[in-house]
Design a protein around this nucleic acid. Sequence first.
DNA 1: CAATTCACG
DNA 2: ACGTACGTGAATTGA
Length: 892
Amino acid sequence: MDKWILIDGNSIANRAFYAMPPLTNSAGLHTNAVFGFTTMLLRLLEEEKPTHVLVAFDAGKVVFRHEGYTEYKGGRAKTPPELSEQFPVMKDLLKAFGISQFELSGYEADDIIGTLTRMADEQNVQTLVVTGDKDMLQLASDNVTIAITRKGISEVEQFSPAAIDEKYGLKPMQIIDLKGLMGDASDNIPGIPGVGEKTALKMLHEFGSVEEVLANTDSLKGKMKEKVETHKDDAIMSKKLATIFREVPLEHGVDDIRYDGYQPAVLADAFRKLEFKSLIERLDLSGEGADSGEEAALAVELNVVVIESDNDGEALQTMLSALQEAGADHGLYVEAIGENPHQAVVLGLAAAVGDTAYVVPIAALQQPFAAELRSWLADEDKPKNGFDTHKIELALGWSGIEWKGAAFDVQLAAYLLDPTDTNLTLNALCDRYGQASVPLDEAVYGKGAKFKVPDTELLYRHLAVKADAVRKLTALESADLEKRGMNKLFYELEQPLSVILAGMERQGIEVEKAELERLGSELESKLTSAVSEIHRLAGMEFNIGSPKQLGEVLFEMLGLPVQKKTKTGYSTDAEVLEKLAPYHEIVPLILHYRTLSKLQSTYIEGLLKEIRQETGKIHTYYRQTIAATGRLSSQFPNLQNIPIRLEEGRQIRKAFVPSEPGWYILAADYSQIELRVLAHISGDERLKEAFIHDMDIHTKTAMDVFGVSADQVDANMRRSAKAVNFGIVYGISDFGLSQNLNITRKEAAKFIEQYFEVFQGVRKYMDDIVMQARRDGFVTTLLERRRYLPEIKASNFNLRSFAERTAMNTPIQGTAADIIKLAMVRMDETLRERGLKSRMLLQVHDELVFEVPEEELELMKELVPSVMAGALQLDVPLKADVNYGVNWYEAK
DNA sequence: CAATTCACG
DNA sequence: ACGTACGTGAATTGA
């Protein structure tokens, strides 16, 4: 039994391109569409076991449909070069598969496939058509099934005539009538304006075809009748445009598309060229082809020199001179075990130069004979390439070894190249750049309870391979940064910042244990009485901290109205409890209990655990490669979410004190930095004006949106305006705003419309940035930080909407992150240049915290805000407010 | 180990 | 019609 598969090459390549994250081989060639296409092809071959396979491509520019309608497919975005360059590659790969491909000048892939399905029907051959284009449904028959891609290309939905009937209530050929009525924006087929899928289906269910609809306009009503009658010709033409031509004069016959399987050696070589390592493994092709064994050979070729005692002095000298000569062409790797760099255990260091890697175990590195290596490591003027240099600097520092001169961190660079990548391990980076794979740490060390440092030989080889990978990645990634115009961002901002962060973290902030304990015991007694009161009111004892048990008490025992459900049961979050508060006196108590227990467990107990016995300090760890927008995040503990909004929690800040007697805590925060950034990048005159005059932005927004004077703005109006401003920054939706303000969606939509009426430049920015994201596939900040948004083209409404809001928000939040990072670099320079004793300790997104000796207080009160405000020149002024006190609480 | 909740900007 | 606000980290419960 024969089985044919006919693939719409252009359509699938397009889908693959937008569904896959960006991907390039080491030569810089984009390969994501080819990769997506290939994985789909492999699955089809495996699952369908076809005897014949054909991939059809559109050919040339002039398609016969243009005759008579020149606008056809006009208005469609130009194919991005990153995709066009992949078509020849795809065609070569198909050759390697031994799969035939047709294209014929003047015809589209649809028509070629249409012609072959006609032949399939004539010969009664089971056929699967694979495409992303619903138009093709018109080809379905007893023999022909249409597979439409969904969710990118990972899934397909198969349509037999019965399935089409079930979904649309139409015969396959009526799909043409459907398009004739509703049109198709992506092909610029007009259809009848105002007729969408719903209406078109209704008409077809009643009349059957475009012609019959047009013949029966009398039975339509009002506006619709008018529209259909004025656009009769459009409908006829649209139907014609949507009709697939099934009589293409093919030069080849059915025998030409026979598929006899691929030759492993040929395919292996093709995959290797594209650096599709995962596919080579999946098909078990690693032993095949001309280049086989190259990867293994590469790994074997690396010479490993271990330097572990003063007997190895000569090797050490060789290592140092090799590093000296290599200049930038080297890789360093320091293995530090443990997530928290302040407590990580350093196993050793490896340095790769050329085909040799030198490994120095930590014990050796700490011995007298390694002094020269240690001074090299501590020499700021010896540039170093590494992996996670920020962590290395800290981990080595705590082990008594100074590390300076971080020049290129391959992890940090990889983050900038794709800040949404959550797998920034060396192993993953090697895969991404098509390098010989570094073994997974899990495979070398085991995981969880099974963690074990392996025998030295294995361990040293592992470190050596990693250092070698760093060397290679440095070259590849620096080229990519250059290509994307991100050199300044990397070399002048992020890489220097990583060093500054390490300094702040090493310095730490002093936290008074006694103060936390005092607050803790106060909380404890409040908690005890809250618990017993809650249990008394419930009439039983239960775990208030268990949402499940709490839900049962509130909604089953006490019979309160259910507001919201979660996946697993009743929702009991604060928003729900606020609404329930009037029903039962137990509810406010539960809210209070929640507040107290959060403070106790996360902030009192949590922070106490993090205070270092010896110094009384807390050392957080800022992560520079996590947040997709370019912000920092803070861990072990998180010092970016210390309570401030409620007075009860704010007390925690009293425990954060200067580490020297008589010093002060000084905190400076940007005023409305995100809205100022928005004013700048949108260029909205009104918004700019507001900041140029340093007005209260929420009051000003209320005045403009409600059309009143300053003294007419009441608290409620200001609150609404503030929520709208937040919404604008987040990528507004009427639903989100309605939730926030507890108003109807309609009212929220009205607010938003009024806002955009007034701030028209903001509206234009929002529209433009989404279009730009669709066109480029990414958005950027002022400093060229980039975030890819592949889902902006998703057909799934939720995914797409999320991407659109992200497109609006990321340039704003990201530019604000750029600015404070710049300010940190400037501030660090300034403190150094002026020889000041003051120290920068913390960053909280729009705030910098310092400890300052009394004699520098007056200077710092001026200096910090002026450096922050001057970090970047915008079309509106930047402003920072400053406060100080004997602890962080008082610095308000 | 996922889900829920809540602290911050 | 579709169902949401953007970005994080930590503690707790309960399968």
